[in-house]
Simulated assay, not measured.
Amino acid sequence: MKYMNSAQAIMFLKDNQPFSKDTEEKFEVIKKYNDVRVHFLNHPDPQCIPLFLNSFGEGSGFGVYQLIEDVLMKFSIEQVVPHLISALKSEHIGVRYWCTHIAASFPAPSLIPPLSNLLSDPDPDIRCAAVTALSQIEDDRVIGILEEFQEKEGDPDVIDLIQEALNESKIDAAIP
């Protein structure tokens, strides 16, 4: 599709909620998804926010998923965070994974509850992303939450990341 309008781009996103796992057969669809991403990068429309946040399948979307954040950065925290809160509770692992990464760029205290819940996610990559996102939020509750989950965590990589975040937050707290 050489040219698409916002209505066509919105319809494409609505039809792909979420994408299935990355496969070679999906490559052409992901190319169109990238065209939709570029469209909204150039023509921001808040209708695309929840649709992008709930579009992520398992995998990387052939490298396109990590570029969706650029579109979302066109919008305010107030526009993105309510949809992000909802997407972080998704039953789809791809949606949770990518939205947890995106949450680090929208450090709002209202994200603390859903991100804290993701510290118990079965996927250690999601738990790591939740630690990173929480560590970006300037709120006194974060240190206590991370300390509590550090005691419960079994994965050494997640434990190390929590410790790193705690050390960083204590350094930040000490700087007047």
Rank of each mutant, 00 (worst) to 15 (best):
H92M: 09
V36P: 01
E164V: 05
P82W: 04
Q66F: 03
A129Y: 02
E168L: 13
S105A: 10
I137K: 04
H92L: 06
R141L: 10
L119C: 05
A129Q: 01
D22P: 07
Y65V: 01
N5L: 03
E148G: 00
D157V: 11
D45M: 07
E69N: 14
N167I: 08
F75G: 04
K89E: 10
D140P: 08
Y33N: 02
S6M: 01
I49L: 08
L166T: 06
L166M: 08
V36Y: 03
L134V: 10
F75Y: 15
I175V: 15
P114V: 12
H92S: 09
Q150S: 13
S169L: 15
Y65C: 02
P176R: 07
Q66V: 00
E69I: 15
V36G: 02
I159N: 00
E151P: 02
V38N: 10
M73I: 07
G154H: 11
E164P: 02
K14E: 15
A103N: 06
F149Q: 05
I162S: 03
V81E: 03
S20W: 06
P176F: 10
Q79A: 13
F52I: 07
G59Q: 04
L118W: 12
A87P: 07
N5T: 04
D139F: 01
E168F: 12
I159R: 15
T132I: 14
D140F: 11
D157L: 13
P114D: 12
K31W: 02
P107T: 03
L13D: 07
A104E: 09
E78W: 01
E69T: 14
E138G: 05
L146P: 13
Q163Y: 02
E91F: 06
L51M: 05
L67H: 12
H43D: 09
R37I: 00
V95N: 00
E91Q: 12
D123H: 06
